[in-house]
Design a protein around this nucleic acid. Structure first.
Length: 227
DNA sequence: AACAGAATCAACCGCGTTCAG
DNA sequence: TCTGAACGCGGTTGATTCTGT
């Protein structure tokens, strides 16, 4: 049985105070990112290492961009999601200054809905033959696009009906290979910070070879990668 | 102005992976 | 080779803010 990552009795939870932020920033500036387990104690924080790591990565890191996503960033996220599925850290790795959490939140709150409104199933990036009813006329759809709404969205059949056996976009791509659909031909050159598209492909292949998921779904003919 | 519902996003949780001993 | 601790990730939650009535 895994032990909890920290002694919960002695750790703060919830929002970080300015003082806590400052302590963490000061410590990491001085000593760099290191063993997250020991950082809280060393920095004089009553937080668990996990929490410190998350706070640093998602909020305090100096190279974070923050603010609205540019259109090219949106496009890139959509394309990468089509390629990689919900592997947010990989996607975020290709967006300089963005974090996996940020990308994930943005996807769940904006991009999903954007795709749905264009009649595209965000799970597999295929045209879904659903009539999109404006929210105002469709009270049932009210919470479906929120991140917390995702849990309620799961059973929202109408939107996944066409591909109810598809788990994610990545799996869809496996199918892509097997049924000989056209090459994705993605233009992923927008501000790639690290390695290159070749590595995305590499990671994808690696992922695919590592995964033994059996897929069983009927492909719809159109995979949509707009942008 | 007050309220309700929706949207946003920081943070937590739990699991899989990695790695050192 | 095995085991356990730590890390990293994706999913989820819940507090806060926004928007419409």
């Amino acid at each position: 049985m895994r032990k909890p990552c920290c002694d919960k009795q002695d750790t703060n939870k919830g929002a970080w105070s300015k003082q806590e932020d400052q302590k963490l920033i000061d410590y990491i500036r001085k000593h760099g990112e290191g063993c997250w387990r020991t950082i809280p104690h060393a920095a004089g924080l009553l937080r668990c290492g996990k929490s410190c790591r998350l706070r640093w990565i998602n909020y305090l890191r100096p190279d974070l961009k923050r603010g609205n996503f540019a259109e090219d960033e949106e496009d890139l996220i959509i394309k990468l999601h089509a390629l990689l599925g919900n592997r947010w850290s990989l996607i975020a790795g290709r967006l300089p200054g963005r974090t996996d959490n940020e990308v994930k939140n943005y996807w769940n709150s904006h991009l999903r809905r954007k795709l749905i409104s264009k009649g595209i199933d965000p799970n597999n990036h295929r045209l879904s033959h659903i009539n999109i009813v404006p929210r105002s006329q469709n009270p049932n759809a009210s919470a479906s696009a929120t991140s917390s709404g995702l849990k309620t969205q799961k059973p929202e059949k109408s939107q996944v009906e066409n591909c109810d056996q598809v788990s994610d976009a990545g799996s869809c791509l496996e199918d892509e290979n097997s049924c000989g659909l056209p090459d994705l031909n993605l233009d992923l050159m927008i501000g790639m910070p690290s390695p290159s598209l070749a590595n995305v492909e590499e990671e994808k292949k690696q992922f695919e070879s590592n995964t033994s998921r059996e897929l069983d779904f009927t492909p719809s003919p159109t995979l949509v990668l707009f942008g």
